[in-house]
Design a protein around this nucleic acid. Sequence first.
DNA 1: ATGACTGCAAACATTTTGCAAAAGG
DNA 2: CCTTTTGCAAAATGTTTGCAGTCAT
Lengths: 141, 141
Amino acid sequence: MASEEEILAKEVRTAGFRATTPRLAVLIFLKGAKYPLSIQRIAKAVGKKVDQVTVYRIVEAFAKAGLVSQSDLGEGRVYEYAGNGDHHHMVCTVCKRVWDFTDEGMGKLIQQALKQTRGFAEVKSHSLELFGLCKLCAAKI
Amino acid sequence: MASEEEILAKEVRTAGFRATTPRLAVLIFLKGAKYPLSIQRIAKAVGKKVDQVTVYRIVEAFAKAGLVSQSDLGEGRVYEYAGNGDHHHMVCTVCKRVWDFTDEGMGKLIQQALKQTRGFAEVKSHSLELFGLCKLCAAKI
DNA sequence: ATGACTGCAAACATTTTGCAAAAGG
DNA sequence: CCTTTTGCAAAATGTTTGCAGTCAT
């Protein structure tokens, strides 16, 4: 049976890249991460065996290829493994913690949007964030 | 009758700020803008009568106060006047142009999300972006 | 073998900070 | 007045680029 690493290596190659140590390190880390992370945090996580410049290039390329998805949860751009399922984010603007949620209605919403905006041909990806207060932070106010 | 500027001045004061020239310049410009803009573009637009550092501070404060809303449409963070109505963005990833669209179902979606994520008390704002290809760019491929 | 990829150094850009002077209420 | 706000200079961060050497295929 294929190891975790072999599976990801295949995924990386399918996306058109060579399966290098830095790329696998980044992808393995992101796959295991519980919430989206900034370049800096990813770089720190993979350790100094991978240069931060390389992390920039890898993550940007992965994002373009759709292997990772990007968003801005209020603290600058963050990235997460796209293969962990389509979901959205709910962010507490005080403690910055992130919750995931899913929504069935996205397909319908996209159809509606396309109907409204003539001029658009095709939606490739989406990003939806809700900002507010978690119960803990709300209680403190 | 109150001039455009007087109305915005009042809005700025209601939000808890002093109605200074730089703040009104930024808000007037953003109110008239047809799509969300970066700090750099806002600074350039209001001219060099307002320092770019001041634009940073103003826009950040306005965003926190809810006077402007922020998002990342793929090219870094951009801002727009919040009073121009609740809407979402559709962005062509090739030519970067932005279309607006609205969605009735947002309230229901938020209720759903709150149901899913125990731990959340209240949603204050949201941000929804669709990325894809406009017809012009799709035709060129 | 050979093109893709990485690391390193340095350029470049963006964002933040501190403080004295200016301006709003 | 008296506090908030601004401009300026400078520091601190963040991001991109160029290139020689390394690695995956």
